[in-house]
Computed example of a mutant assay.
Amino acid sequence: MSLDLYYHPYSRAAGTLWALEEVGVPYKLKVVDIMKGEQKGPELVALNPMGKLPTLVDGGVVITEGAAIALYLADRYAAGRLAPALDAPERGTYLRWAFFAPSVVEPAVMAKNSGWEVKEISAGWGNHASMLAAADSAIAGRQFVLGDEFSMADVVLGGLLRFLIGFKQIDATPTFSAYVERLEARPALQRAEARNQAMRQELGLQ
């Protein structure tokens, strides 16, 4: 059964292609013209009340939120290869850093760049400096989040760090830069990037 990804190459769904390419199962792209606001149309809102991308449909199952989609794909289609077993000791580390990306890294960056006035004790993301130090600790001295073993946690955390560095929203520290270089050597990421690029050209977005 094919997976259907509601997608636009200039949306977060572009990153979901990497997760799909890593698991290696067939999928179809359902292009949503976000420039025209189609993500707020009845078809997508019926699936995802937020009217946002990515939205993945796997048979009768609907999954939204990029990190949730990635972890779902790993558990369902690549358990033991991209996701530690439920009773594996490394499962905790895997979940910890996968959830750290959208829950701490992204809001901390947005808070700093937008000048939000928040109380550190009240904000779930703490502060920008402690976020960066924690993210560094997740990969410092190791190849990937789980050590020498690549996992879907690297797609989630590493994908976000790669995006933020690419758009100069965080500094490209030696630790982060070396990590991103290792990720960019992944054939699945290269295939995803090629498909995103092809879709941009097909849609006349370049």
Rank of each mutant, 00 (worst) to 15 (best):
F176P: 07
T173W: 00
L183S: 04
S177W: 06
E193M: 14
Q197C: 05
E193G: 09
A172P: 02
E193Y: 02
Q201H: 13
R195H: 12
S177K: 15
I170E: 01
E193R: 12
R191C: 02
A178W: 05
S177Q: 13
T175K: 00
Q190E: 11
Q197M: 12
T175M: 04
I170P: 03
P187E: 14
E193L: 14
A188H: 04
A198P: 05
E184G: 08
A185F: 10
N196K: 15
A188D: 06
Q201K: 12
R191E: 04
T173L: 02
D171H: 05
A178Y: 04
T175I: 14
M199E: 14
I170A: 09
E184A: 09
D171F: 00
A178C: 07
A194S: 08
T175H: 01
Y179R: 10
L189I: 12
E184I: 10
I170Q: 07
E181Q: 11
V180P: 00
L189Y: 09
E184Q: 15
F176D: 05
A188P: 04
V180F: 05
Q190V: 13
I170C: 08
A198T: 09
A172W: 06
Q197N: 11
A198C: 10
P187G: 07
I170T: 00
P187C: 11
Q197A: 09
A194R: 15
R182Y: 04
T173D: 09
E184D: 15
A172H: 08
R200E: 15
E181M: 05
Q190A: 15
S177D: 08
A192Y: 00
T175N: 09
R186W: 12
E181S: 15
A192W: 05
L183G: 00
P174C: 02
Q190L: 14
P174F: 03
A178V: 01
P174S: 03
M199V: 02
A185P: 04
N196W: 07
R200Q: 14
F176R: 02
Q190W: 06
R182V: 01
M199A: 14
N196L: 13
P174W: 07
N196Y: 04
T175E: 01
N196G: 13
Q190C: 12
A198S: 12
F176K: 04
L183N: 06
A188W: 02
A192P: 02
S177G: 06
Q197V: 10
R195C: 06
